[in-house]
Every structure is written in C-alpha cells, then in structure tokens.
C-alpha cells in the first residue's frame, strides 16, 4: 500500500477488476432455476450415459446434445479437497475446506465448501457429505443457495466407488 508518512513507497494497490454480463446458456439456466426450487438437476448423455451437473447442454466426450434431465441426490462423496489457509474476500475465516463433491447419481464433481466438520474429525477423500441449503425464502438461481456441505456421519465411501471421478 502507499505510505502517507514519507520516504520511498514500497508497493501500490494494483487491483484488476473485470465485470462480465454472464449468460450461462439454456441448459445451465434450467439447472440454476432448479436450484432456486431447492432441487439439483443434471443432464444425462444419451450416448455414454454420463450425468453432468451443472449441465452444459452437450456431452464433451460424445459431442451430442444432452436433453434427459436427472434429479440428483443432495448427498455425495468428497473426491478430493483443499484446505484454504489464506484469506480472500469471503466472510469465511480460514482455515476452511473446499472440496470436489460427487453427488450420488452424478458423473462429475461439484466444487463447494465443507463446514460443520465435527471436532477431531478431518475432511478425507471418500467422506460422505450432504447439502445445507439457505432458508426457502432465500432460494435464488445460484449455487450460493447451497450454503455448504456437511458430513453425514455415514462411513466413508470406498475408493473404488469414486476413483473414476478424480
């Protein structure tokens, strides 16, 4: 930061800010609207049968449109995670855990926050977690409608059940 006292300046604030008018497209818009109803809706590829969430409207492997909608469980498995020790702007006090969460029935992991980890328990690969939603009147078409995921207390999922999704 610039120094108001005197002598040479050590550093200057040099923020980079980009403002986008973001349009997620039809498939992802449907998914976001389902989120606003407290549901998680993905799409299944008619060719390889993989279930994408969020759906993008096509399968990147088979290059075909995805139209079949699949309602997904609010529970899933942590496939991999990261402990964040540095503070960004969020109002979350570090350390906290961000994780890739493979919802039951999905073939691609979502990225979200893990909270309410019981004292003495660490987040692990395979940990079973469930979505914690905002109050119904606060539901909006954004993934922020899910506040975070928390451990369900179920036994960890075996590695073989998610190794294809890392």
């Amino acid at each position: 930061m610039s120094d108001p006292v005197g002598g040479p300046v050590g550093g200057i604030g040099a923020p980079i800010r980009l403002e986008y008018d973001y349009t997620p497209g039809e498939a992802t818009s449907r998914y976001l609207r389902s989120i606003a109803e407290g549901r998680i809706v993905g799409q299944r590829c008619p060719s390889c049968k993989k279930v994408y969430v969020p759906p993008r409207g096509s399968c990147p492997t088979c290059a075909v449109p995805t139209t079949d909608e699949v309602e997904l469980s609010h529970k899933g498995t942590v496939t991999t995670f990261c402990v964040v020790n540095l503070s960004f702007y969020q109002d979350i006090e570090p350390p906290y855990v961000c994780a890739s969460i493979l919802l039951d029935g999905a073939d691609i992991a979502l990225f979200h926050l893990i909270q309410e980890v019981p004292e003495g328990r660490e987040v692990t690969m395979g940990m079973r977690v469930e979505a914690v939603w905002v109050e119904p009147e606060e539901l909006r078409p954004t993934l922020e409608s899910i506040k975070y995921f928390r451990p369900t207390g179920e036994p960890d999922a075996p590695y073989d059940s998610y190794k294809e999704h890392l």
Partner: peptide, 26 residues
C-alpha cells in the same frame, strides 16, 4: 429463457515497486 447476471472477477493485487519507482512515488 437463458439467465443473465453480473459477474465480477477481481484480483486485489499489491505490487511492489522497487527502490527507484518507490522513490519516484514518494
């Protein structure tokens, strides 16, 4: 209808300027 929303991407960099530019700015 596809949704649309403002999305802001911001990096709050602090850049160190070195001894010469530091003196210029001082």
């Amino acid at each position: 209808t596809p949704l649309s929303a403002l999305h802001v991407l911001e990096y709050p960099y602090t850049r160190s300027v070195g001894p010469v530019v530091g003196r210029f700015l001082g």
